[in-house]
Design a binder for these strands. Structure first.
Length: 108
DNA sequence: TGGCTGACTTTCG
DNA sequence: ACGAAAGCCAGCC
């Protein structure tokens, strides 16, 4: 496709298994552009219209729902995560270390 | 063409 | 330990 970056981001996000989460930096790093972690979020903004892209599974490196405010409604992000078996308290993933999904490891 | 923006990340103070 | 600033890349005006 034309926008390789966005397409790649979508691909990776779509590959995230339910009950798992990853970080923007991990995806950016997987794409080889660690510096453009913000771009990943931006790509999500465009992917926001694609239901195939579970953007709610993409958090910041701390496992905090940084982009929840971009969801409609924002609470849907946390509910979606909890619906998949993840525990979210105070907009943050609980035991994130165990449920963390690294594309560089899983897709490598 | 040039410059701003951005759902991040890392480092210095 | 907390706060603020810089760095990175790609899309959009």
């Amino acid at each position: 496709m034309n926008s390789n970056f966005f397409e790649d981001v979508y691909e990776v996000v779509k590959l995230i298994p339910a009950g798992r989460w990853t970080s923007y930096g991990a995806i950016a790093n997987y794409l080889g552009t660690r510096g453009s972690a913000r771009m990943v979020g931006w790509a999500m903004n465009s992917a926001h219209g694609l239901q195939d892209v579970p953007a709610h599974r993409v958090l910041n490196r701390s496992g905090i729902l940084t982009g929840k405010h971009h969801f409609v409604p924002p609470e849907s992000m946390q509910e979606s995560l909890e619906n998949e078996g993840l525990k979210v308290i105070n907009d943050k993933i609980v035991n994130g270390s165990e449920s963390y999904w690294n594309p560089n490891v899983e897709l490598m």
